[in-house]
Design a protein around this nucleic acid. Sequence first.
DNA 1: GAATAGATAGGAAATCTGACTTACTATTGC
DNA 2: GCAATAGTAAGTCAGATTTCCTATCTATTC
Lengths: 394, 394
Amino acid sequence: MTRLAGSSKLLRAMNESATLALLLERGTLTRAELRELTGLSKPTTSDVLRTLTGVGFATVIGHTSGGPGPNAEIYAINPSAAHVAALSIRDVTETAHPAVGAALGDLTGNVLARAEYDLEPSDPITTVVSTVEDLCRRAGLDRGAVTHVQLAVPGSYDPAGDTIRHIDVAGWNRPGLVSDLAGRLDTTVGAENDVNLAAIAERHRGVATGTEGFALLWFGAGLGCAIDLGDTLLRGVSGGAGELGYVPVGQSGKDLQDLVGGPAVLALAAEHGYHARTPEAAVAEAVSHVDGRARTPADPFLKELAERIAVALASVAAILDPPLVVLAGEVAQAGGSVLRDLVAEAFHGATPLRTPIAVTALTDDAVLLGALDAGLRAVRDSLIDSLRHALAPA
Amino acid sequence: MTRLAGSSKLLRAMNESATLALLLERGTLTRAELRELTGLSKPTTSDVLRTLTGVGFATVIGHTSGGPGPNAEIYAINPSAAHVAALSIRDVTETAHPAVGAALGDLTGNVLARAEYDLEPSDPITTVVSTVEDLCRRAGLDRGAVTHVQLAVPGSYDPAGDTIRHIDVAGWNRPGLVSDLAGRLDTTVGAENDVNLAAIAERHRGVATGTEGFALLWFGAGLGCAIDLGDTLLRGVSGGAGELGYVPVGQSGKDLQDLVGGPAVLALAAEHGYHARTPEAAVAEAVSHVDGRARTPADPFLKELAERIAVALASVAAILDPPLVVLAGEVAQAGGSVLRDLVAEAFHGATPLRTPIAVTALTDDAVLLGALDAGLRAVRDSLIDSLRHALAPA
DNA sequence: GAATAGATAGGAAATCTGACTTACTATTGC
DNA sequence: GCAATAGTAAGTCAGATTTCCTATCTATTC
């Protein structure tokens, strides 16, 4: 329901925005292709591109060749027009300080620097600032080149109250932290739940590429769920939809946390003779047995685990009816396709639903990559509508 | 991410659209108010309004008075610019023909005619056409005045396959039915699940007015769930999200249908000595006892029912974390605030979630009213973007 | 020589600003 | 109490501005 009104200046702004958006989406385009895509005339397209190159958002990256006539200029986004720092704040169990995974990317998504930190206890602001500074040092960039910092947090961010909630790392739940960071860094700062970010990564580089929407179930130390609606994530009222752990299991008073939470899985593994330090290790061990013994009857531990996961899956699938469900998190990753098949079997046996099930395709740090993707999107959106408001022709 | 590009014609179209949208939303506006809201200049606003009145979308409805200076003209939408027929197709248990509730509304939402039909078996097309014709007759309108027909169906509509699915009335599941109807009636035709439409009514005229989003749980003969995201409904992959009945209840192999479906409620009532023909009748009887006896301990039937409903509610609330959950359908309506309070108690006892719970505020036919609201929105949207494409200045 | 990329020039559509006319209210003066 | 006058606001008109498009032109490449 865009009910936008304005004058010829708005028109110009819209045409510039549209052109920039197309360049961001497609990577490289010639003037003729842009003309086709925007529907604008030759002179207008030229003029818009002149402005975009003038302010440094786009550049000529090369020339076509081969056909008759002059070689057309190929335009692309200027990768250095903006940079994004992504930080994954990890809850390292009982310690008061977080471990941090971090990456620095340019506007086209290239990763310019990446590092892991195991920081000594300190103020969150110091943690973030020094991390960003170190990333810039590694990439040989000035800190001012970073325009957006995206945080992945093991909790939920409530933008209304400007507070990170349900986070277990000291100092991070202070209201106003995010805007203080923005002021201190002189960038925009975004914070988002880690599972939601993993879902974003799954859409951009995983098994959910191109799907209309999907639900991602996270099985790790904790339990989580992200709901992708195609172009947005469904966030609950407090910024944390997908509190899967609270889904009741019948009227027993128990919930899914008691069934497929990290400790529950560990306990179940122990019952079946798998003694490991983490649930994913137990699952990995069970899977390796199965893989070795070819097509023997399923391992009873995995079978029971799959049945429990199927309960969680069926709850989500029945309520949302998504085009796809992705199993992710350390446990699901360790279980791989063996676990997936068992889950599918249990799921089909228990309900008439036929939702497709996939295991995450991301072997790298999905949360961090998702944070980078989300940060990129934020920066791109802000570039696009920076043109809508102010415009400074060279 | 509107990446719209175009020429001055687009600009004019946008300004007309914006003006029309504002008129539809606010009802009546003076030129000065429109100027303020759109940001357009005086001459442009005048010009746009001239066009809108020229094509018959808007009319001068009166004049201001009292202040100094000339009396400003008050503009409003022309109610007769479009008409919507809403039909609620009801599954009358074992019969092969449906009962139909129907209403005819004008563009401002006024109901011009309303009727109930208990049709003899016939082709769906005949059913719909004759119903629409009868509505027009009652309202004293030509059939050509109807621009959109909105169907409420006890099933789900799959627009991709142009098929109404999961419907138990003979002839209605034929692929292509909806587009055939559109051709036969010479209108646009929409079909939508009845519970979803009840949610739309709840947003427009019920307890969900103004909320950011909500989940509506439907307890009647069947079990349903609609998810309102603020400006859209969440539809599943097959057009039917909210197959609440399939949510598993633990690993027992049972699901919510076995817990709070119509037959289950009826059976539970019988166990507690309430023998009625329908579940809502049983609930109504139990509630009337409670109401009489003031603050006595809760009726055990209602208490158990509330606990079961709380399980359904908790599943939905945990996965979606909506700002509000509305209990609707015949059973919830019969239970009223008595049942609501019991559900809230059970819900709070079983989970840490604190989602607000409300009972539907609609005593009238929510499904039919929702169909009217949905039809109106469809017509309004199509009017608004009819201006975007073609435009015929007088 | 044919075809294409990009620039230039002229014209059309839509907007805005500022001045102008008209209509209504309120105050002042008799 | 009535009438003339001053002030304010609605809506139109005219000129300037912005932006875009069509058509033409030049230059380049195969």
